[in-house]
C-alpha cells in the first residue's frame, strides 16, 4: 500500500533551476520541418503570468512515442519529443518543434506556476485537421469550449495557443 506524494506549487523561484537553454527548442528553428507554437498564459483578470513554466510532450512525425534521449542537451539529430519553456516578463512562451503524426496530431501540455498547487493538463490540437472531428477527447468537450484546445494558424509554420487559467474563455483542462 503506497501513498501518493501530494503536489505542491512550483512557486516563483524555479526560473534559475528548471528552464534550460535548449528547452523550447525541441528541434532547432532551422530544421526544414520546424513549426513554432507560441502564446501567452493569462490569469482570471486577463493578466499575463510572467512566472509560468510550460512543458510539452508529443509523438514524432511518424506518430510514435519518442524514445530517444537528448531533451536536456539537444543533439540536433534525434527527436526527443520533450520541451520546456518558462514565460517571459510579458507572459509569453514559445516552442520550436515538429508536427506530430497520427490521425489527430496534438501536443500534451502541462502548465506549472506560482498559485497553481498542482499543474493544469491540456492538449494543443492543430486547426484544419480532418481527424479533429472524430477525436474522442475533443468530442468529449462541450462544443462551445473546443476552440480553447485548438491552436490558431498564423502562417504556414507558426501557431498561436493561449492558455487562460480562468474565466470566460478558460482553457479546457483534463483530469487524467
Amino acid at each position: 500500500m503506497n501513498e501518493t506524494t501530494p503536489s505542491q506549487t512550483v512557486g516563483p523561484f524555479f526560473g534559475y533551476a528548471l528552464p534550460y537553454g535548449d528547452g523550447p527548442r525541441v528541434v532547432p528553428e532551422w530544421h526544414p520541418d520546424a513549426i513554432r507554437i507560441h502564446g501567452g498564459v493569462f490569469d482570471g483578470a486577463g493578466e499575463p503570468l510572467p512566472d509560468a513554466l510550460l512543458e510539452i510532450w508529443q509523438a514524432g512525425p511518424d506518430g510514435e512515442v519518442p524514445r530517444a534521449v537528448g531533451a536536456l542537451t539537444r543533439d540536433g539529430h534525434d527527436f526527443a519529443g520533450f520541451g520546456r519553456c518558462g514565460t517571459d516578463a510579458a507572459g509569453h512562451y514559445w516552442f520550436s518543434t515538429l508536427k506530430p503524426g497520427g490521425p489527430t496530431p496534438y501536443l500534451a501540455l502541462l502548465v506549472f506556476a506560482r498559485g497553481l498547487l498542482k499543474p493544469v493538463i491540456t492538449r494543443i490540437y492543430f486547426p484544419d485537421e480532418p481527424g479533429n472531428a472524430g477525436d474522442p477527447v475533443l468530442s468529449g468537450v462541450p462544443p462551445e469550449r473546443r476552440d480553447t484546445l485548438v491552436a490558431v494558424r498564423e502562417h504556414d509554420r507558426s501557431y498561436r495557443f493561449d492558455v487562460r487559467l480562468q474565466g470566460e474563455q478558460e482553457t479546457v483542462f483534463f483530469a487524467v
Binding site: T9, D43, G44, A45, E47, L49, A113, R114, G115, L116, L117, V120, P136, V137, G140, V141, L165, Q166, G167, E170, V172, F173, F174, A175, V176
Partner: peptide, 16 residues
C-alpha cells in the same frame, strides 16, 4: 496566488 489562477470550471475526464 490561487484565487485568480485556479481553474474555475470542472476538469474534463477523457472518456477513454
Amino acid at each position: 496566488s490561487t484565487p485568480l489562477r485556479a481553474p474555475s470550471r470542472p476538469l474534463i475526464v477523457p472518456a477513454y
